[in-house]
Design a protein around this nucleic acid. Structure first.
Lengths: 132, 132
DNA sequence: GTTGACCTTCCAGTTGCTGGAAGGACCATA
DNA sequence: TATGGTCCTTCCAGCAACTGGAAGGTCAAC
């Protein structure tokens, strides 16, 4: 299969597939004409990567997960550990965003949003107060 | 003031301050010895930037907000518009993360996390099923 | 033989810094 | 005056994970 077919079937863009090869996530063969030549297995791996990335796993996590995926002697605790750590980081991000959201939404509510210059948002950002 | 003083007082690292100068967010003067020379105003701007960045505003948003901050003829609706758009994007990010979180946490719960290879997490990522 | 869709490589850009190297400036002390 | 330590300078590279584009080779159809 050429890269275009794999891209269509796996949902991973051709550019990204080339990038994944470059960083050693997949190793397609080459046809005589120099085109990459993919097997079903390559396609499955790419779909796997696509899903893992969609769940927010980092490329390095993906590398680990792919290795576990291919290793029949894996222990599910290894997979779970990666997923749990990722979950923890997601929770951190959510917490940070929600904290920003809370502050910001409060400021937005307080701002008149009219033609006058006075603005609680700027006042909050300003270290000196907005009276001028 | 030298960059070190400003960094300590504004909470923005010296490296970051130099970067902000490079991208045109601030314009410190230069002393005879070539050192950057900052005024109180510069420090206020940097503190402003520090807070805006902490609320997640992009550098370009910061540029806009800083311009509004300095413009006495601003209208608060301009500020509010920037903040509301940012809020919207934060909400999007939160939603995305929460959706990931939901899937991931479900998978983590289902995974035994023991010494056996069977793993619902890998099974979910895999497009072909884990039976081998 | 020529179009058009495909493929190739390589380079640059994205966002917002951060680290480090190499070297000049300043200040205090011996 | 030498020396040391702490500042400051510039420049270059790297992070994550692609994405866009240029320049050019390949292939299949008409």
């Amino acid at each position: 299969m050429n890269i275009g077919d794999v891209a269509r079937n796996s949902g991973v863009p051709a550019k990204t597939i080339r990038y994944y090869e470059e960083i050693g996530l997949i190793h397609p063969n080459r046809s005589e004409n120099g085109y990459r030549d993919f097997t079903e297995t390559h396609m499955h791996k790419l779909a796997f990567l696509g899903r893992a990335r969609a769940l927010g796993f980092s490329i390095e996590d993906c590398r680990t997960l792919l290795a576990l995926y291919e290793n029949e002697n894996r222990e599910s605790m290894q997979v779970k550990a990666v997923a749990e750590e990722h979950l923890r980081q997601i929770d951190e991000k959510i917490a940070k965003l929600q904290s920003m959201r809370a502050t910001l939404s409060e400021l937005v509510d307080k701002c008149a949003g009219d033609h006058r210059p006075d603005c609680p948002i700027l006042a909050d950002l300003s270290p000196v107060g907005m009276s001028e």
